[in-house]
Amino acid sequence: MLKAGNEMQAKTMNIKTRKTTMAGDSTSLQRSKASEVWLQFRKNKGAVVALILLILIVLVALFSDIIWDYKDDVIKQNISEKLQGPSLAHPFGTDHVGRDMVARVGYGTRYSLSIALASVVIAVIAGGILGAIAGYFGGWIENIIMRLTDIFTMIPSALMAIGIIVIIGIKTSNLVIALGITNIPVFTRITRASVMTVRNCEYIEASRAIGASELYILFVHALPNSMSQIFVQATLAVGNCIIAASSLSFIGVGVPVPTPEWGALLSMGRSYIQSAPYLTLFPGLAIFVTVMLINTVGDGLRDALDPKLKQ
């Protein structure tokens, strides 16, 4: 009974929104969808707190060059103050050449976040295009793209990233490219699946009937429908990319020294786990907390966009 009641309510709501869209212009439709998602998202207290903390971290990343001076605080060596434990002056301690770890971890936010974000953007664009083509056109194109995707997922991502970096060289921009490529298959699969579900919808047929070109239909009608799924996956992928990028830097094939990326900081602190454990503690904590916040927001977003999925 309760379920039926809910359905009724959903139906009336649907009718209402449809009416407003018919009356209003397209921007009001978008606004109403965004605000609906936000209303859903707001119910999840944990996700809201995570979002606020995440925004703070992003602000640190954006303004790290104002908060700290890269040359003086982050890079300059100060041997006389080396390996000091956490204190008021240096809450995270100092490293083996006397650099303040707060400044280095703080500045690292900018590197770690932007590397991850840029990789995901590459993956979303490339994977989105491939997946859309595969899902929309089908046939042999789909076969080739999906078989290649299968094969690519077979190589462990870390191995593939290392392989790509070996070929194009150790550089921060190359790290982004390598991580971007390893993340393409995920987005190819998602986009293909969601484009396939709308491919045979009536509105696509209608659009074709009034003479829209296939590419226009694909990008204007079919793709926007898969956006919410892609967005959720992209959020979660940013978290994974932060871990992947720091893993590679930790191994020594990520960012070049002395870039204060979190994994690189950890790798350096590793030689001092007996005398100065705080050197590995704080950069690791930074990665861990950031990724956890991103995952919480991502999960909240998924539930908000598709309440049906929530258990």
């Binding site: 978290g239 871990i243 720091s246 893993s247 930790f250 994994g263 950890l266 590793r270 786990i273 007996q274 454990p277 590995t280 690791g284 990665i287 861990f288 990724v291 956890m292 995952n295 919480t296």
Partner: peptide
């Protein structure tokens, strides 16, 4: 499971070494 998904492998390894070896 939330903690397990967000913790970087290599950091966990180092923490375990710190605790159980060092």
């Amino acid at each position: 499971s939330f903690v397990g998904m967000a913790i970087p492998n290599f950091w966990l390894g180092i923490l375990l070494i710190m605790a159980f070896s060092v």
